[in-house]
Computed example of a mutant assay.
Amino acid sequence: MNDQAVLEVEDLRTEFRTPRGVVRAVDGVSLSLRSGETLGIVGESGSGKSVLGRTIMGLVTSDPTTTVTGTVRIGGHDVHAASAKERRSMWGTQVAMVFQDPMTSLNPVKRVGTHLTEALRLHLRLDKKVAKQRATDLLRQVGIPDPARRMTQFPHELSGGMRQRVVIAMALCCDPKLLIADEPTTALDVTVQKQILDLLTSLAESRQMATILISHDLGAVAGRTDRVQVMYAGRVVERSETADVFDGPRHPYTEGLLASIPRLSDPPHTTLRTIVGSPPNMADPPAGCRFAPRCPYAQDRCRAEQPELVDVGVAGRSHVAACHYALEEVG
């Protein structure tokens, strides 16, 4: 694995001003990612995962209702210090994104081939014939049968899984250094989900891309990521190597997420464990630890004092958690 940092995020904050107050969707997130490394970002809906991905991409623009602070560097380039034109030149060549719903990522009145050749001709300055051949090869690489015929079809003529493969081909066509996959298997059946996730893993390994896999499904990141970052209410609550998070979670929220996964070894009709309560109102989050109202281990200090990320790793292994009692065994 290359030690060069492809992505560096420092104290990133994304705030939206709404009629109900300021929503801090991303609240002080820092991370780094090297070439060939895959980071899984997990958490419930509303935890800030997707907003984090879009902010890293530079898709969350600063307007009168939005404020973005902190630093995002991709390949050494400061994303938010760049002009709109400079950011557009980075999309595809430096960083690319696979969005949740492939149907909304594709223009319904443009043929599949046009989606791919436009980016190739714009960013790589390829002529029409070479761009068409490269686009056909890309469709073949992502496992689409009869790619020459698919080039002439419209998105609605493809299945959901095929459309997602087209979106992946679009994201990879200009060989980006960083790929962000935001819930890439939403609305796909289980068999196709596995195919798409396996495809992303294989392509990331063969191209030595830095990859962020955003998901609410812990099973999707198990075995496919090097590290896992758990988010809750806009903040990082735990981060470590994937095996360490799954084998020994040190934050009660992570423990709850893992406990809610159904297991084949459970007898029939076993009641799934759930995390009590609901995520907080991000326009008016609770004082102290934001997970405290739902935490079975919460104490007075948790409700009064916001915990910082601290190193709870053993044997020199990096493992951080934002919990006042993370050094104690939870559960």
Rank of each mutant, 00 (worst) to 15 (best):
H216R: 09
D189V: 13
T191M: 12
D198H: 12
D175T: 14
H156T: 05
F154M: 12
R235V: 03
A204S: 15
H156Y: 15
A233K: 02
V236E: 13
V221Q: 03
A233C: 09
A233R: 00
Q164S: 05
S159I: 05
E183Y: 09
Q229T: 14
P155Y: 06
A220N: 09
E183W: 08
A210E: 04
R224P: 00
L158K: 05
D198P: 12
R235L: 03
L213Q: 04
V166H: 03
C174K: 09
E157H: 09
V221D: 05
R149Y: 02
R227T: 08
V192R: 09
L158T: 06
A220R: 08
T185W: 08
F154Q: 12
A187F: 10
A204V: 10
V228P: 03
Q193F: 11
Q195I: 12
L158R: 01
T191L: 14
V237L: 04
L218E: 08
V166L: 02
R163A: 02
T152H: 11
K177C: 04
R150H: 06
R150K: 13
A233T: 00
C174F: 13
L199A: 11
V167C: 03
K177L: 12
G223E: 07
M209F: 01
T191E: 10
P155T: 11
V228I: 15
Q153D: 12
L199Y: 14
P155S: 12
L188Q: 03
C174G: 09
F154S: 08
P155L: 06
L188F: 01
V190C: 11
C174N: 07
G234P: 04
R150Y: 07
S215P: 07
T211Q: 13
R227E: 11
T186P: 05
M151C: 11
R224F: 06
S159M: 05
V167A: 02
R235F: 00
A181S: 14
L179Y: 02
D175Q: 15
